[in-house]
Amino acid sequence: MDMEQLKSDIISYSKTIGIDKIGFTTADTFTEMKNRLIRQEMAGYQSGFEEPDIEKRVDPSLTFDQPRSIIAIALAYPSRMKDAPRSKRGERRGIFCRASWGTDYHHVLRDRLKKLEEYIVSRIPEARFRSMVDTGELVDRAVSERAGIGWSGKNCSIITPEFGSYVYLGEMITNLPFSPDKPIEDGCGTCNKCVDVCPTGALIEGGRLDAQKCIAFLTQTKGFLKDEYRLKLGNRIYGCDTCQTVCPENKGKDFHFHEEMEPDPEVAKPLLKPLLTISNRDFKETYGHISGSWRGKKPIQRNAIIALAHYKDETAIPDLIGVLKNDVRPVMRGTSAWALGKIGGQEAEEALKHQIEKEVDPEVLEEIQKGLQLMTE
């Protein structure tokens, strides 16, 4: 088999199945990435969602027998929403990050990778693969960078010349020896906008992220959010796009190539108050198909409460009082107490004073005290 011809054919075929960019690289150990991961771990900057074994994250041979090369793919997703609903008094809305618009990208990319595998096997029956999207052992960004998909930006995203950083990434390790593509030269230069505007200072420096401070990570946690981060969430209920929206490389980039990625405006920018009491069934039916639902409804509901405080939405006071009195989950009761304090008003104050006499959870009691204190400031 002429491997260069096969590579050319794979590239041509990939375009017919909705892969927007494809690259090839070696299956060598990602030595520099290993050093970076060790530094991240030592500094306590990991999110905890990653594969814990650093060796597996950088050495393809630990998860695949006799790897010869890696194929990386990228799919461009939309950056603008058509017919986006407006947030207005009494009908305040939250926002899911762009990477959570449309069908869960894990499913979309796995579909493309499966089709690619089937095509290659039809050409070489003995071909073997291990495909992964986001949750695999390898670092998607490191693979894509080495395969020439794009460069690793200061915002810790892969930035492609064609689509900016609005791309989903996936890869497959294979036993086939494809020739590697050349990496793309770094294009960030002296630009530091993403680092300068990061809401929580999570971008320590260009290309280095403290995931524990990143809003994208914080919106996925399930406990009480630290006070210092609450109002920095704004109306974000899942993820954060700030470091992408300020990037000059993303200016004017908006691609609508894949029907599965088109957002339902009412899902991507949902009304906040209905989220406070949504049932598990309704949450799954409405949001279960998007990647932002993977942690369940609890973080989304907590973030919705914080967003209502951000808006100081007085029309939400009865809803928040209902959560404070009736929700069985301390995080929801406590966050509602804090939100009532941020919004203020006599009705909110009376509810907090009434509930402090009934509440038994120490963390919730602390949040009620915070809420009452906020009303005096």
Score class of each variant (00 low, 15 high):
Pro78Ile: 03
Gly334Met: 02
Asp327Phe: 03
Lys193His: 15
Lys154Tyr: 09
Pro183Phe: 08
Lys325Gln: 13
His310Asp: 00
Asn250Glu: 10
His106Met: 12
Arg123Gln: 15
Ile11Ala: 02
Lys253Cys: 04
Asp227Trp: 01
Thr376Leu: 00
Ile300Pro: 02
Cys198Asp: 08
Gly164Trp: 05
Ile317Gly: 01
Phe24Gly: 05
Ile368Asp: 04
Ile237Lys: 02
Phe64His: 05
Ile71Cys: 03
Arg281Tyr: 13
Gly189Ser: 07
Gly371Tyr: 01
Arg333Asp: 10
Ser87Phe: 00
Thr174Gln: 02
Gly341Asp: 05
Leu324Ala: 03
Met81Val: 04
Asp319Gln: 02
Glu347Asp: 06
Pro183Leu: 09
Phe178Ser: 02
Glu359Thr: 14
Ser8His: 15
Ile306Lys: 10
Ser157Trp: 06
Leu169Thr: 15
Thr160Ser: 15
Ile305Arg: 03
Ser152Val: 14
Leu138Lys: 13
Lys222Glu: 02
Ala351Trp: 01
Arg236Gly: 09
Ala72Asp: 10
Ile306Met: 09
Glu117Gly: 11
Met1Thr: 04
Lys226Gly: 09
Lys88Asp: 11
Asp254Met: 12
Ala339Ile: 00
Arg302Gly: 03
Ala142Arg: 12
Thr315Pro: 08
Ser14Cys: 13
Glu50Val: 15
Asn326Gly: 12
Ala84Glu: 02
Trp151Pro: 11
Leu374Ile: 01
Asp83Asn: 13
Gly48Val: 09
Asp28Ala: 07
Trp294Phe: 07
Glu117Ser: 12
Leu272Glu: 08
Gly18Leu: 12
Gly344Val: 07
Gln46Ala: 13
Val360Thr: 15
Pro67Ser: 11
Arg146Gly: 06
Gly148Pro: 10
Ile173Gly: 01
Gly94Tyr: 03
Glu117Thr: 13
Lys251Thr: 02
Arg112Asp: 03
Asp327Tyr: 02
Arg39Met: 14
Glu91Cys: 02
Asn235Asp: 04
Val167Phe: 05
Ile73Trp: 04
Val58His: 14
Arg236Val: 00
Ile317Lys: 08
Tyr45Trp: 15
Glu145Gly: 06
Met375His: 09
Tyr238Phe: 14
Gln5Trp: 13
Val133His: 00
Val328Leu: 07
Asp53Lys: 15
Val331Leu: 02
Ile278His: 03
Asn175Pro: 08
Gly341Pro: 05
Arg86Met: 10
Ala27Met: 14
Asp186Leu: 06
Cys188His: 09
Thr160Ile: 10
Lys358Asn: 13
Ile149Phe: 06
Ile305Gln: 11
Val331Arg: 00
Thr174Pro: 03
Ile306His: 10
Asp264His: 06
Gln301Phe: 03
Val197Arg: 15
Pro125Glu: 09
Ala27Lys: 06
Cys198Tyr: 05
Cys188Arg: 05
Leu275Glu: 00
Glu162Phe: 10
Pro270His: 08
Ile173Val: 13
Arg93Glu: 01
Val195Glu: 15
Gly371His: 06
Phe129Met: 07
Gly90Trp: 05
Asp111Pro: 02
Leu372Trp: 00
Gln66Asp: 15
Pro183Tyr: 12
Lys370Arg: 09
Gly206Ala: 12
Asp104Pro: 01
Val108Ile: 14
Arg208Asp: 07
Gln212Trp: 07
Ala99Cys: 08
Asp282Val: 08
Ile10Val: 13
Thr200Phe: 14
Pro299His: 09
Ile70Arg: 07
Asp227His: 03
Ile120Trp: 06
Ser291Tyr: 01
Ile71Arg: 04
Arg130Ser: 07
Glu41Asp: 11
Asp28Arg: 05
Asp104Val: 09
Lys269Met: 07
Met332Ala: 06
Leu138Thr: 07
